[in-house]
Design a protein around this nucleic acid. Structure first.
Length: 152
DNA sequence: GCCAACGTTGGC
DNA sequence: GCCAACGTTGGC
């Protein structure tokens, strides 16, 4: 099993939105590296840190898991969607997504500021300057370190 | 709202 | 294939 971190703007899609829906397609990703992680590397049961970005208190809000592996992101075919891609066709889709399922909402957010203060996490792209990728792999050690912060 | 960092586009 | 221009991300 592998571990991941996925960013979402809570104004658009938050951990509470996922909790209320239980599962959701992770649509709207329009970056090739992030797409490749979803298309090629994210497998059933992989655990995901759900990160809130571009908000008052950026940080990890909870955990989700992969509940369906790669399939075409339907928003690329929808001309009314913000994520419409005129170059994508159903025969040769350009954008792929996984579905994720709610696992847990933390009682309090593990803030970016906290994550930045932990020596063991300094290699995470998240805490490095200029890192914008919305999906990143997380190592087992990083996962355990972050989980241990949950109740402290 | 600012702006650094980065990805993408398109002319050549 | 280079690279300048542009658009976007996302913390602050």
């Amino acid at each position: 099993m592998k571990y991941w971190l996925m960013k979402s703007e809570p104004d658009v899609f938050s951990i509470d939105t996922l909790k209320s829906k239980n599962t959701s397609g992770w649509d709207g990703v329009r970056n090739y590296m992030a797409r490749n992680y979803m298309r090629d590397n994210m497998k059933m049961g992989d655990l995901i840190f759900f990160y809130h970005s571009s908000c008052e208190i950026p940080g990890i809000a909870g955990i989700a898991k992969v509940s369906r592996e790669s399939h075409p992101d339907p928003t690329q075919f929808d001309s009314k969607s913000d994520y419409f891609d005129p170059k994508a066709t159903k025969e040769t889709p350009r954008w792929f997504m996984v579905d994720v399922e709610f696992v847990e909402k933390f009682t309090s957010i593990i803030t970016l500021s906290t994550l930045k203060s932990i020596k063991e996490l300094e290699k995470m792209p998240l805490v490095q300057k200029g890192s914008r990728l919305s999906i990143n792999p997380v190592t087992e050690q990083e996962f355990q370190t972050i989980i241990s912060l949950k109740n402290s």
